[in-house]
């Protein structure tokens, strides 16, 4: 289980997250929702180690992630699919996958497993990543993260800018990953997406998680969506 206990974090003198706490269980999808600028992406970047934690703790099992240098966090089994994908654009699909395999020293078996999940990528292994379509780029971003064989997966708005059929594919992939026992933390703005895949929804405001609600307690017209997203 990944626990975030009372963290304060930000960029230089600017504090974005304030005394933020929540947890993500194995085999569950925890969605993070909130208006633009509340710190959802900063939270993801703090968990993966790219934003320094000023106080509080982030732990995965007994490992204190916040105390590790950034490059050691993925070695513990935390994978990150950033907003905007951030592929290694000039590198080929095969090379992006290869980078994903490095941190936890995974071999051809893992590579094949990931490419079986996204057969379209197998057809484009020698293609430069930046020339893929938006949907294919998102597939590659997820595939590259899955190469780590992660215990925790952070997905920051994976459906952003994608056509509906591709969003459905991403949802199906998330649900399959959940079944395999991965703890998934998903930043998402789309209510329909959240209602489809989430087990819990954490609503953020002012740099804090203010409430965590089970999916079963939410409906498309719930007041919480109106209060925290303005929809």
């Amino acid at each position: 289980m990944l626990r975030v206990d009372g963290i304060t974090a930000g960029y230089g003198p600017v504090t974005i997250l304030r005394d933020l706490s929540f947890k993500a269980e194995a085999g569950q999808v925890t969605c993070i929702m909130g208006r633009n600028g509340v710190g959802k992406s900063t939270l993801m970047r703090a968990i993966i180690g790219l934003v320094p934690v000023q106080s509080g703790q982030i732990t995965l099992g007994k490992v204190a992630l916040h105390a590790l240098p950034p490059h050691q966090v993925p070695v513990q089994g935390v994978a990150y699919v950033p907003q905007g994908r951030r592929l290694f654009g000039p590198l080929t699909v095969a090379e992006n996958i290869e980078i994903g395999l490095l941190a936890r020293k995974k071999g051809p078996q893992r590579r094949d497993y990931v490419l079986d999940l996204f057969p379209r990528l197998r057809e484009r292994l020698d293609q430069v990543a930046s020339t893929l379509s938006g949907g294919e780029q998102q597939m590659l971003a997820i595939a590259r993260a899955l190469c780590l064989e992660p215990e925790v997966m952070l997905l920051d708005e994976p459906s952003e800018g994608l056509q509906p059929s591709m969003i459905t594919l991403i949802h199906e992939t998330i649900l399959r990953l959940r079944e395999s026992g991965i703890a998934i933390i998903l930043v998402e703005q789309r209510v329909d997406s959240v209602l489809r895949v989430a087990d819990h929804v954490a609503f953020m405001a002012n740099g804090r998680v203010e409430t965590v609600v089970p999916r079963s307690d939410l409906a498309p017209d719930s007041m919480l969506f109106r209060d925290y997203l303005g929809v």
């Binding site: 993966i48 180690g49 790219l50 240098p69 950034p70 490059h71 050691q72 966090v73 993925p74 070695v75 994978a79 990150y80 950033p82 951030r86 290694f88 654009g89 000039p90 590198l91 090379e95 980078i99 994903g100 490095l102 941190a103 936890r104 590259r144 780590l148």
Partner: peptide, 16 residues
């Protein structure tokens, strides 16, 4: 080459 493209993302894949 990966570090050249994106230092932050490289770190999230275990690159020191």
């Amino acid at each position: 080459r990966a570090t050249q493209v994106d230092r932050d993302t490289a770190q999230t894949f275990g690159i020191n």
